[in-house]
Simulated assay, not measured.
Amino acid sequence: MATNNPYTAYQNNTVNTSTPGELTLMLYNGCLKFIQQAKISLENGNIQETNVSSQKAQAIISELMLTLDKSYPVSQNMLVLYEFVTSRIIEGNIKKDSLMFEEAAGIMKEFRDTWKQVIQINRQKQYGEVNEI
C-alpha cells in the first residue's frame, strides 16, 4: 500500500536528486544523528534503543568504507579512522560508556565538516566557471 506522506515524498526526492557529494554529506549527518541517539538512549537507560542506534551508525560507516575511492593515498588513513570510529561505537555500546560515543562523534564531525567545505569549494568553482563563459 503506497503512502501519500509529503515528507516521505520529499525525502525520496532529495535522495534521488542529490549529487554523490551531497549523498556522502547525508551519510555523515545520519551517522552523527544515530551516534547522538545512542548516547542519549544510553544516558536514559534505554539499552535496546542504544543498541539499535549504534548498529545504524555502524551500518552507515560500513557504507562509507565500501564507497571509499582507494585510488587516493588519503583513503587508507580514512579507512583506519572509520575502523576506529566503528570500534568506539561498539565499545561504547558494550561497555555502556557515553564518552566513547562522544569520541566517535567528534571524529565523524571532522569528516562531515571537511566534506561540507569540499562541497562548498566545488560549488564556488562551478559558479566561477559559469561566470567566465
Results as ranks from 00 to 15, higher is better:
36 Q>D: 08
89 I>S: 05
95 K>I: 01
114 T>V: 10
33 K>Q: 15
76 Q>H: 08
58 Q>G: 09
94 I>L: 11
118 V>Y: 03
2 A>V: 13
64 L>K: 06
116 K>V: 02
123 R>F: 09
73 P>N: 06
5 N>S: 09
87 S>M: 10
36 Q>N: 10
42 L>M: 12
99 L>S: 01
106 G>R: 05
20 P>G: 02
129 E>D: 15
97 D>H: 03
12 N>F: 11
44 N>I: 08
59 A>W: 05
131 N>A: 14
69 D>N: 13
7 Y>E: 10
115 W>H: 15
15 V>R: 13
27 L>H: 08
68 L>M: 13
50 T>Y: 00
31 C>S: 14
4 N>T: 13
107 I>L: 02
23 L>Y: 11
9 A>K: 14
93 N>S: 13
10 Y>D: 11
59 A>T: 14
85 V>N: 04
113 D>C: 04
44 N>W: 01
67 T>R: 03
5 N>L: 09
133 I>L: 03
20 P>H: 02
126 Q>A: 14
120 Q>E: 15
47 I>D: 04
34 F>M: 03
1 M>V: 10
80 V>C: 08
130 V>Q: 02
72 Y>A: 09
8 T>R: 08
33 K>D: 12
49 E>C: 00
13 N>V: 08
14 T>W: 12
41 S>Y: 04
86 T>W: 06
66 L>R: 15
62 S>Q: 14
26 M>L: 14
105 A>Y: 06
120 Q>H: 14
118 V>A: 07
62 S>P: 01
115 W>Y: 08
97 D>G: 09
79 L>D: 03
22 E>S: 00
25 L>H: 12
127 Y>F: 07
99 L>K: 10
52 V>N: 06
101 F>M: 11
69 D>L: 11
28 Y>H: 02
50 T>R: 04
19 T>F: 00
81 L>S: 02
26 M>G: 02
124 Q>C: 02
47 I>A: 07
3 T>H: 14
12 N>H: 08
130 V>H: 05
53 S>T: 04
100 M>T: 04
128 G>N: 13
123 R>H: 15
27 L>Q: 00
44 N>E: 15
31 C>V: 11
73 P>A: 06
118 V>L: 13
108 M>V: 04
85 V>I: 04
122 N>M: 10
41 S>G: 09
77 N>F: 02
109 K>P: 00
56 K>P: 06
52 V>S: 08
121 I>T: 14
1 M>G: 10
116 K>W: 12
79 L>K: 03
30 G>M: 07
12 N>R: 15
18 S>H: 11
115 W>I: 07
126 Q>M: 10
14 T>A: 13
33 K>V: 09
62 S>I: 13
117 Q>P: 01
50 T>P: 01
68 L>Q: 10
74 V>M: 11
30 G>T: 12
107 I>M: 09
61 I>N: 07
43 E>W: 00
50 T>G: 00
120 Q>L: 05
39 K>S: 12
84 F>R: 15
105 A>L: 07
3 T>M: 11
95 K>A: 12
